[in-house]
Design a protein around this nucleic acid. Structure first.
Lengths: 343, 343
DNA sequence: GTTAGCACTCTCAATGTCCGAGTGCTAATC
DNA sequence: GATTAGCACTCGGACATTGAGAGTGCTAAC
């Protein structure tokens, strides 16, 4: 074995040992676990070189080595061996997800919950951006004397409901009228076109009726906005408590970041359909810079896709977690396609 | 001032100083802030007696005193002065809650979010138990070729939706038929009566149609169960990261407890309409025994009520937090009454 | 290029010392 | 009898010292 190849082997072994134990790994302990026979002195020399290349570091002069972020990067990109899921694990994932596949939101929540449980990370699932969604139909259901619910159905299979309240008693004739007027105006309209300007012109088109229907319009507007905005399901936040690298101040900031789907989405954009890994300070968000994020695009139709992501400690079991994420992402993509195609 | 009264004054001062600073308070520092003039030696004697009564304790022999749980208890029950909210604060709360008052769930989520923000605690709002709810109407809306949504409206103003999927193409005639059959069977039925046995007999009553309508029945069943089960809205979990008394192991357990509305509810039962305070180990749940819970019943109609609760460190600003909770609880009760009455 | 050996460095835990905050007690005072 | 001043005492926290042990870097030999 040529020396450089051995160095990579050593890097790999260091990373894996550190992921497993969390302790800095020394030359002696390492060369016992190595499957080729060299003395600890040789390992030491190699480790010193790896350290000078910036792949390993020491917590103090006479401690074992731990991987640097760059070290993890090389490991993830070049060294680690993928561990495909077993057939059993695959079918378990499918079985758990299938019952949730009646609606996209439901499915994504299920996927996030499942992933957080399997991996011990915090899971995020962004819903497909509504950009491509077109309003298929709007329905109204009376829920009380003064209250009703608007149901907005889009071409992407998403169903949004919104309760609202009127100043007058609602009658079946009125809901029918709402339905007729609103569908005339909104059917076939891309949800992203439902802008304040569009609402303005809709109100104008209604003439004197618009006063009566203010709340109706507002409710439709809200539902359309819900459908156009990418929302994100977050599950497994309790796992944050098991990540000691999260300074208690950062914990709060991260939790708050996760409830702002807007920022979250921006952060996760650029993820590829193969799981892409961001390690530590590669993540641009300061509160997250002590953690790793693994993100994977799920794809159903070209326009309809989103991101599944896992947030965990830098020191995590990348091979296993990446496999779980990629497989789940595949399944979600497929289930969504079916949902849209046969919706 | 007679001595016992002074001792209570001293207890009050210790609790308030400790709540403010988090540091054990010594006799000297204390008697400077006291509004009657006694020497530190006198204060010391009194504090020693309070300690022997189990109301104060020391972290070590020569430190200042901190309140025991019993000390907090006396403070909360007897000593603290209520601080009513200002008119401005009251109207702010009202203004924020009003837009959410179109549906009970929505309102409770809003109340929890608001309370967690004001108080820095974690807020829980359990929805009224569905026990009293009666199914008013069931509607069906087709959302796709094979998918539809059932909408279940109850007498308590609660609206539950559930998407489902059929093996056959759904037509307007079919949804109409669903609606007719289901309303015949379910209208006027208390949601708690929708038991497996009831579903069984419903299926039997449908005869051969029941095979076709399996998923319809299941969806209605799910919606009714949703309406009968008390769910809980939890907001402000990120505040857990600011509570140092929460050992990191307990953090995870508490977060998980909060996602099990069943257990949560059991814990909060017995709360009165006046805010009731549970301090530290008075809470029976082990993971919570280092925290305090303040719970207040909101009441609209006699049958329709639930609990608003705040979870925070034992060392919290009780007067302020109790006021905010009680006021919010009142408002929520009123808004719910209106919702039901004029629903 | 590899290895054995050795001196060196640094952390960690145990131990000792000192300082100061705050107490408990006693005797004097109101 | 309640209050106060004074003083000895206790204990924790900060700091320095020490020794053991793990692991390194370097050098010289293979």
């Amino acid at each position: 074995m040529e020396p450089t190849q051995r160095k990579l082997k050593i890097l790999e072994a260091v990373v894996e040992a550190f992921i497993k134990t969390g302790e800095p790994v020394g030359s002696k302990a390492l060369c016992e676990n190595l499957d080729f026979n060299v003395s600890s002195a040789t390992v030491r020399n190699d480790m010193a070189e790896l350290a000078s290349l910036g792949l390993l570091e020491q917590t103090h002069t006479s401690s074992g080595r731990i991987p640097t972020e760059l070290g993890y990067r090389i490991y993830v990109d070049k060294l680690m061996k993928r561990i495909p899921l077993t057939k059993y694990e695959q079918s378990r994932i499918y079985d758990i997800l299938y019952p949730a596949s009646d609606a996209p939101e439901h499915l994504l929540e299920g996927a996030a919950a499942l992933l957080s449980k399997i991996t011990g990370c915090v899971a995020v699932a962004t819903s497909p951006p509504g950009e491509a969604a077109i309003i298929k139909k709007i329905r109204f259901i009376q829920t009380g004397r003064y209250t009703a619910m608007v149901v907005l159905i889009t071409s992407t299979g998403s169903v949004k409901t919104k309760l609202f309240r009127c100043d007058f008693v609602i009658t079946p004739e009125l809901t029918e009228m709402f339905e007729k007027t609103m569908n005339e105006r909104f059917s076939g309209v891309p949800v992203t076109d439902v802008t304040p300007a569009f609402m303005q012109s809709s109100a104008a088109a209604l003439g004197e009726m618009s006063i009566l229907m203010t709340n109706v319009l507002l409710a439709v507007n809200d539902a359309a906005r819900d459908a156009s905005v990418a929302s994100a399901a977050v599950r497994g936040q309790s796992n944050f408590f098991t990540m000691p690298e999260l300074a208690s101040g950062d914990g709060k900031r991260v939790m708050e970041l996760l409830s702002h789907s807007r920022e979250l989405e921006r952060m996760l954009m650029g993820a590829d359909s193969k799981a892409s890994v961001l390690i530590g300070s590669e993540i641009k968000h300061p509160a997250l810079s002590s953690l790793s994020v693994i993100a994977s695009h799920y794809k159903s139709t070209p326009e309809c896709s989103g991101v599944l992501a896992l947030i965990g400690p830098v020191r995590m079991d990348y091979p296993k977690i990446i496999s779980a994420l990629e497989y789940t992402s595949d399944i979600v993509g497929n289930m969504l396609s079916e949902l849209i195609e046969y919706g």
